[in-house]
Structure formats: structure tokens, C-alpha cells
């Protein structure tokens, strides 16, 4: 194995890890507050991707505008879902939330299939993003670079937000102990809605980046990455925002190295590897890398 092959794999791992991280953040924030595993989260990424594939021709003049618009659409959709499907269930058994998110996921997937058919759609890109940039013997696609920088930027912004602003600190307080945070005068509906909005927005961002990276999208593409992002969130320590980023990168790198350094016949087993990793983390260190160990997380 040459050094450049290693670096190439590293870069691939960081690229896919960035996408997992962006999706994992929302899952982790929402789980941290509501104990909801939002199976529909990956589908918000899918919706941003599908709308992007459909609308690009109109908006091809301005990819940046498309990018922001789709992220906002996903964010607002997440907000709406919270309002319609999840808020009426506050205080209900955990399982009811889980089932509802499964149902929402099903509605989004089937709905998109009904509107756009289930066949894959080409996701248009711009030259700067599809171009391969060479650094010595290592090549990096423009879309991957953009993905990486956007993810790091999101991580920095979110960290600043949750550490330095009153709303952000309140969000962490709500996530840690809902009752006590109400005693501080916090109306938890606001941090919860905000968590849904930010998380869904980043899932929307990931959806567009996904389209730029792979060049095509279909109505079912979000579900499995959504599940894997949950694995990433668990690895990083569910409920922790920095943990979601760390977990995303750990999972992305582990997956790419698993495929990259084993014989090609093993590459189909990558999901077996990913979900076995989940088993191991759950059994050995359920609080994850950056999570706090707490009885009530059980």
C-alpha cells in the first residue's frame, strides 16, 4: 500500500464522513431532547436532493441560491413535521414517537415516489464541483472539498452557538434535564423546534451535497444514510453535537478503510461492518466517544 493510496482513502473517508456528520447532528440534537429516533430524518435529506434534481434547470444560474433555498425548505419541513406529528406526542411513551417517525418516513418516501416516480434522477452540478483537482498523486473532487469545508464550518458555527449564546446554552440545558430547564423559565417548545429546524436544515444541506457527489438521487436514497448517521451519532455519543461530528467522521473513515483495505469481494459487506460496529459500541461503550455516561440514557 502506497502513501498516496492511504491519503486518497483518507480523503474519501472524510468526504463520506462529512455527509454522515451533517445528518447525524440533527438526529443527535433531537434525540438528546425528546428521546426520539427520527427515522424520517434521512428522508429530509432525500427531499432536498429530489427537489434539487428537479429544480436545478430553473436555477442553474445560481447554485448557491439553490443550495440555500433547499436547505431552508428542508429546515421548514422539519419544523412542520415536529409541529404536526411529534408535538402531539409529548409525554407519550417513547415507542409511540419511534413508530410515528417510521410512519412519517414512509409517507415522505411514498409521497415522493408518487410525485416523481421511483426512478433515479440526474442531479445537475456545476463544473467547479465535478472537476477533479490534483495534488501530487492525490485527486480530490470539487464537491468533496465543498462538502468538507461546509461541514467544518457548520461544526464551528454550531459549537459557537451552543456554547456562547443564551438560546444555545438553553438548548443544551433542555437536552440534559427537561424538568429542571423549565424551572429556569425555559419554554422547551422553542429549543425543540429550533433543534428540528437546525437539524433538518443540515440534512437538507447534506442532500444537495449528496447530489453533487453522486450525481443522482432517488426517493429512497435517504433512509439507509439516515440509519447510518444514527450509528454515527451513537458512536460519537448521542445528544452531543460535537459527538455527532466526531462520530460521522469515525464512521466514514472506518467504512472507507474497511472497503479500501480488504479484498474487493468484501466491499458488499460494508453495511454489515457498519452495523456490527453499532452493536459493539452499544455493548461496550453505549455513551459513545463524547457522550456523558448517565443511567437515564439507557
Amino acid at each position: 500500500m502506497s502513501a498516496s493510496y492511504f491519503i486518497q482513502q483518507l480523503i474519501n473517508g472524510l468526504a463520506i464522513g462529512s455527509l454522515y456528520a451533517l445528518v447525524a447532528v440533527g438526529l443527535s440534537m433531537v434525540y438528546g431532547i425528546l428521546r426520539l429516533i427520527n427515522f424520517a430524518h434521512g428522508d429530509l435529506m432525500m427531499i432536498a436532493g429530489m427537489l434539487g434534481a428537479t429544480l436545478f434547470l430553473w436555477l442553474s444560474k445560481s447554485p448557491l441560491f439553490l443550495f440555500v433555498a433547499l436547505a431552508l425548505v428542508a429546515g421548514l419541513l422539519g419544523l412542520a413535521l415536529e409541529r404536526i406529528a411529534y408535538r402531539p406526542l409529548r409525554g407519550a411513551p417513547e415507542v409511540n414517537l419511534l413508530i410515528t417517525s417510521f410512519a412519517v418516513s414512509s409517507i415522505l418516501q411514498v409521497g415522493m415516489q408518487m410525485i416523481f416516480s421511483s426512478s433515479p434522477r440526474r442531479f445537475e452540478t456545476v463544473a467547479a464541483l465535478s472537476k477533479l483537482y490534483s495534488f501530487g498523486s492525490v485527486q480530490i473532487r470539487g464537491a468533496d472539498m465543498a462538502t468538507f469545508f461546509i461541514t467544518i464550518l457548520s461544526a464551528l458555527l454550531l459549537t459557537w452557538f451552543t456554547r456562547r449564546t443564551r438560546t444555545g446554552i438553553a438548548m443544551r440545558a433542555v437536552s440534559e434535564n427537561l424538568d429542571t430547564s423549565m424551572l429556569m423559565g425555559i419554554n422547551p417548545s422553542r429549543p425543540i423546534a429550533l433543534a428540528f429546524f437546525i437539524g433538518s436544515l443540515l440534512a437538507g444541506v447534506a442532500g444537495v451535497l449528496w447530489g453533487w457527489k453522486y450525481g443522482q438521487v432517488d426517493p429512497l436514497f435517504g433512509f439507509l444514510p439516515g440509519l447510518k448517521a444514527f450509528v454515527a451519532a451513537v458512536i460519537g455519543g448521542i445528544g452531543s453535537i460535537p459527538g455527532a461530528f466526531v462520530g460521522g467522521y469515525v464512521l466514514g473513515l472506518a467504512e472507507v478503510f474497511f472497503v479500501g483495505f480488504l479484498p474487493p469481494s468484501f466491499s458488499g459487506y460494508r453495511d454489515v461492518f457498519v452495523f456490527s460496529l453499532l452493536f459493539i459500541v452499544l455493548l461496550v461503550k453505549p455513551q459513545g466517544i463524547l457522550g456523558q455516561s448517565k443511567g437515564r440514557r439507557a
Partner: peptide
């Protein structure tokens, strides 16, 4: 006590004055 263990002392005090 209900302190927020994952928040710093400063952040706990800030949350105390949330309103």
C-alpha cells in the same frame, strides 16, 4: 440539586438568569 452536569458553572448561572 438539579444542576446541569454537562454545563460549566458559568453556563449554569447564565441559565439561572434565562429570563
Amino acid at each position: 440539586r438539579g444542576i446541569f452536569a454537562g454545563l460549566s458553572v458559568r453556563e449554569n448561572l447564565q441559565i439561572g438568569g434565562f429570563l
